[in-house]
Design a binder for these strands. Structure first.
Lengths: 186, 186
DNA sequence: TTCATTTTTTATCATTTGTTAATTTTTTTC
DNA sequence: GAAAAAAATTAACAAATGATAAAAAATGAA
């Protein structure tokens, strides 16, 4: 998905503002397994995924995957982006990826100068918020097997592209538990 | 907490922009038990809590509380605010409340006109996002008893102001389960 | 292909949380 | 302050999920 479409998909921008954003974006590619973003560091960039798939995970005793990003989505350490604090997530490429890189510093400058871009940034945060809120509510309401069915319905392609250990972790259960759930659904 | 302080606490605003916002705010009071916001309706206002305590819950078989709001916090149906869609939450006053009311429609107008207010709105969404993300991660990582301890640590006053049934529901467990956890901690 | 490695499934038992019902404690109302 | 109502706790059993280990299946490398 190309940068112009990605930006517009977040929130429609006047041509001039879109160009201003695009001018600050550079293309970059990494291969599967690359660690794009490390936990406990302030991350100076955000990325838009042109092609490929990534996951965000947190390391404690075990790795817990809490987000997948695919074409058109934004890779961002919210803590870095919002609070200039080190984030808790590591981002790993699950496939070879082509990315658009944008320096947070430059983006902030654009936010302060251009009301359209400020509102674009507002819309971005708002949409991410809705998604996160829905996941929280899903977790509050549904048991593991319902959450699995929901994921199958909303993002069926993930099951093809991501190994089940990561899916289980994303659903908040163990891989063994997910296997059991899948067996019961047959 | 008065409106000027609430607005600045979200994100510092130049005086002129702050006045523009304040001019669109009206004070209003309701007593304990009042339903401020109904599920499945598009809510045309947002509210800032001057004084009091509210909860957001979703009704299925049972009520599930998923948010508490106290002095200084913002009462908002994200679905209404962001997508102009009916929200899933009902908001109930747990104490007599004094509120500041702001029409979403007016706020949107200010967003489009004033870059400072647009960035204020961006900051608001970003901060809410960080909070929601942290809760999601807490839910992914911690068991019920750890989440209870975390709540005691971060918001000890809630335990004084809110009955345990709501707390249990917020933690994603049954009241009976919470009682068991509390008994074990003694 | 074939062997080695990784991923997924299955099985067993332990632990956590849910459900229902009864009891105790606290709060509200008269 | 007593009675009624609401909230919180306790107990017993059920269901869901976790942990560990072993087996089977899928994937990747030589």
């Amino acid at each position: 998905m190309d940068i112009s479409k990605i930006l517009d998909h977040i929130h429609q921008l006047p041509e001039q503002s879109k160009f201003a954003l695009q001018n600050n974006v550079t293309e970059i590619a990494f291969s599967k397994g690359h660690i794009l973003l490390k936990a406990n560091k302030i991350e100076p960039n955000i990325y838009f995924i042109k092609k490929g798939l990534v996951r965000a995970f947190i390391e404690r005793d075990n790795e817990v995957t809490f987000w997948f990003g695919k074409e058109g989505e934004t890779v961002i350490s919210m803590k870095s982006y919002v609070e200039d604090q080190p984030g808790y997530e590591t981002i790993e490429l699950l496939e070879d990826c082509e990315l658009y890189e944008l320096k947070t510093e430059n983006l902030r400058k654009l936010f302060s100068e251009d009301v359209h871009i400020a509102n674009w940034g507002r819309k971005f945060a708002e949409k991410e918020l809705i998604k996160t809120e829905e996941r929280l509510i899903s977790k509050q309401f549904k048991n593991a097997s319902e959450r699995y069915l929901e994921l199958m319905k909303d993002h069926p392609e993930l099951l093809q592209r991501v190994q089940l250990g990561h899916i289980a972790s994303y659903l908040g259960i163990t891989q063994v538990s997910l296997s059991r759930i899948r067996a019961e659904l047959k």
